[in-house]
């Protein structure tokens, strides 16, 4: 674990993964909670952001609530991974793309305005890559992306 983070920064990461205050001066509220002043909190966040520890502070939107989406997986010959990834990179409908260690080695999320568009997009991906796309949509969720407890030591 990185030792360059201040104790305040670690606590902010721990307490702010959800329930970021929705009130006029949220950073001041957090400061009160942590026993410091607002400027310290704002500076701590700006520093986290500048150093790349913080992607953003903001909302995580529920997939399936806006538009249609699915996780998808492909079996790509090892030598073609780069080429296929490049082709997929041109689809604005694909927003997460991971290479994973498995026979099914390319995993990505496809999103579209509605189900017919999603189906069409997946067919387009199959045409462009000449590979089968396995659709793995969420059937049920037991834990949504709510962050997770970090171990600092």
């Amino acid at each position: 674990m990185d030792k360059t983070l201040s104790p305040i920064q670690r606590r902010l990461i721990d307490v702010c993964q959800h329930n970021f205050p929705i009130e006029p001066d949220p950073y001041s509220t957090l400061a009160t909670k942590l026993g410091c002043d607002e400027a310290t909190v704002i500076d701590a966040f700006k520093d986290l952001k500048a150093k790349g520890y913080l992607a953003r502070i903001g909302a995580t939107y529920a997939t399936g609530r806006i538009g249609a989406s699915t996780l998808a997986a492909m079996e790509v010959p090892e030598a073609d991974i780069e080429k296929v990834a490049q082709k997929l990179g041109r689809f604005t409908e694909i927003n997460h793309n991971y290479e994973r260690e498995d026979k099914l080695n390319l995993w990505f999320v496809v999103t579209a305005a509605d189900q017919p568009t999603l189906t069409r997009t997946i067919r387009d991906i199959e045409i462009v890559t000449s590979l089968k796309v396995h659709r793995m949509p969420m059937v049920e969720h037991y834990r949504l992306d709510l962050g997770f407890a970090l171990q600092w030591n």
Partner: peptide, 12 residues
Amino acid sequence: VGIIRRIGIIPN
């Protein structure tokens, strides 16, 4: 209503 799952930091 669940359109937003959570508001918080998205750490790297």
